[in-house]
Amino acid sequence: MLSRIAESLFWIGRYLERAENTTRIVEVHLQLLLDDPSVDQDDAAHSLLAVMGAAPVEVADTSEVLRALCYDTASACSIAAALGGAREAARRARETVSIEMWEAINTTWNSVKGARLQRMRPASAFRHVRERCAVISGTADQTMSHDEGWHFLTLGRSLERVDMTARLISTAHLTSGTQSAWNNVLRGCGAHHAFVRTYGGVTTDKDAAEFLLLDRLFPRSVVHSLQSAESSLADLALAGGRRVGFDDEAQRLLGTARAALEYRAPGRMLEDLPQRMTDLQRTCNLVSEAVTTRYFTGATAATWSGGN
């Protein structure tokens, strides 16, 4: 398939996942403020914005969090910007994505653009965005051929999920020690139910971190997402006729990151957690670059000098 289209699909996957996870992260944040009156609102807002890579601001409070991470299309890490980016990428790949998928993405954008998102209550807005993302990814799975293009979409989704879950864990760590921080995080990524079923009622921070990092069955855990990204890359390499070896830089990076998580001594799970999460985000960027170099390069226009 066209490199440019592959790149668009990859980014549709990333942007949608980003939008969805951002709703989860912001919701966790708001919930924490409600649950625990001892938390300093402004401090929490500052650190959340930092973790999400928002542009630094003087005064951070809840409304700033909502602006920078949800509504403001000019803020690169906002939900609105992510949905806009997904829609723009889909428009470029319009003849490749299925009609139903395009319409799902387009109606989603129409439902949030022009400050429509602000007008909903935050909780409804978050649910709306998550539902729309579920509709889109379900539609993609059911109406797109599971060919190369779909693999790029899944790859983008998985990679972004690794990145976002790492950020979510970082925010949990920042507020850990406070009551219910990890519970909140687990709820945030829809994992609380699965977690309780697996670990039973009495749990520790370590259990929660372990679950989010290492659970092999829960689809939002870091290891699961890494694995899924790896398998997309393997399918892509296979489609390109490669059947042996790991010459693929992106695959190597992902495998290394996964091994580092999986083979860590059980007792050291919480050690250096923030630093490791930052490293994981960096790995995601490197993987994204490696994929770009291998599959998407050349998709930029040449500029010519001379002539008449």
């Binding site: 040449a302 500029t303 010519w304 000098s305 002539g307 008449n308």
Partner: peptide
């Protein structure tokens, strides 16, 4: 002149020649 320029063309990657 421009209908019969001996050598003309475009190139990519540098600003001048």
């Amino acid at each position: 002149y421009f209908d019969v320029t001996p050598l003309k063309g475009v190139y990519s990657g540098s600003q001048s020649s």
